[in-house]
Design a binder for these strands. Sequence first.
DNA 1: GCGAACGCACTTGTATACTAGTATCCACGC
DNA 2: GCGTGGATACTAGTATACAAGTGCGTTCGC
Lengths: 239, 239
Amino acid sequence: MAEPIPIRGGNAPDNPRRAGRASAGPYLYAALRDQIVRAELAPGERLSEAELGERLGVSRTPIREALGRLRDDRLVEVRPQIGTFVARISPAAVSDAQFIREALECTAVRVSAELADVESMAQMEENLRAQERATDRIDIDAWQLLDDTFHRQICDLSGHPAVWPVNERAKSHLNRLRRLSLSMPDYLPTMVEAHRTVAEAVGNHDPDAAEAALREHLRAVLREVPRIREQHPDYFEEP
Amino acid sequence: MAEPIPIRGGNAPDNPRRAGRASAGPYLYAALRDQIVRAELAPGERLSEAELGERLGVSRTPIREALGRLRDDRLVEVRPQIGTFVARISPAAVSDAQFIREALECTAVRVSAELADVESMAQMEENLRAQERATDRIDIDAWQLLDDTFHRQICDLSGHPAVWPVNERAKSHLNRLRRLSLSMPDYLPTMVEAHRTVAEAVGNHDPDAAEAALREHLRAVLREVPRIREQHPDYFEEP
DNA sequence: GCGAACGCACTTGTATACTAGTATCCACGC
DNA sequence: GCGTGGATACTAGTATACAAGTGCGTTCGC
């Protein structure tokens, strides 16, 4: 077997041959999802199970496990006996993802505003400062990680840790959209500012303000869809 | 290979060897999940991949695909090199499922109340009548199917078809709880009545009333947890 | 009798072999 | 030149073989 070829960049863990004996499936899932979100695997691109396995240094079996989860997420489309493809962006799927995310995260932030304590707010503040640093460096990769962490904090603070995994799967679709937005660097300061507004409302134990600020922030990405579609028409579904 | 042994009862499709050449994974997932929800596979019970494959007439490969999804759902626990077990009921997981379900379904019902048209309301009414018939027969299996359909209608009516699959996965945990509630037959008429209240509010295009009625209905199951735990302490996590 | 160590049976995870179906491309007939 | 048929090289789905690890039972030593 060929040695695993590290996946360049990205937020994925380091290597499928991890220390322990845990299965490689979850790692491969995270790695492939990251590549799809970053558009290193372009919408519509064909994925060969065999080639992916060769590239990542594993057999088809764990690759298929990862692709199965990605199919559940609607990030890849598997056509039996034909091929596996990176899903093109479907406005309907994006809308669904937005709906799910808004419902979950806005509900969570209300609870979080009630439960927020000093320690949690300190963690959020630390994350916000890191976001500002990443913004100054125009380090989109780092900022994306911090963005995920920020929204995860909101979910976890509600006391329901199972919310984040669900939210994350919906968020993938929206993250991919944002990645394709060429003017994204311009928006980084705006988004950090929006995060700070949400965090302040949470710290002030003001559920209404927190929900309103978060909802407004979440909808910002969605407004970019038409422009992105104009720039990358081939990345979208045909209909 | 041994011929597949049909799964007794339940809501699962008929046979893994379906007409087409679609993969058996989704079928097996639905079948096993149904058995878990119905507690035919009891919480804590050990599942052998090999034995499941033999019983269902397939090899370990598609069985593992189904178990992987069930693990994502937290309905089974896979301990590498040790075994796979039906997850015991975790009050935390139940609480998380309830949170997710409330957030999604209550948000959906608000939109549905705005979008409801004559045809959709007729479908709901038809479902409600079927629920009443199932209640008269005390046919819990049939009622459970109709309950899923009713809540699915609420989700789909919002115009976001991707909501239901997510909601369904959370609902599984709550369905399993309800299954264990020995006094469930007593509650059937109450629940049908609650459904009707929700449907009426939706038909009246009254989002506030619809959300309030649905939220109250959804929380009914949760109130049973302590009693169920008393009746089946071995079905719950130890901590 | 009791304890410890070895070994066997069984587990999940991974790799590979095999099956059945699709699309493409090229050659051949018209 | 054009249409058609077939070989071929792929695809995903499934079955099976192999690897690595765990726990329990038995047996040997004291």
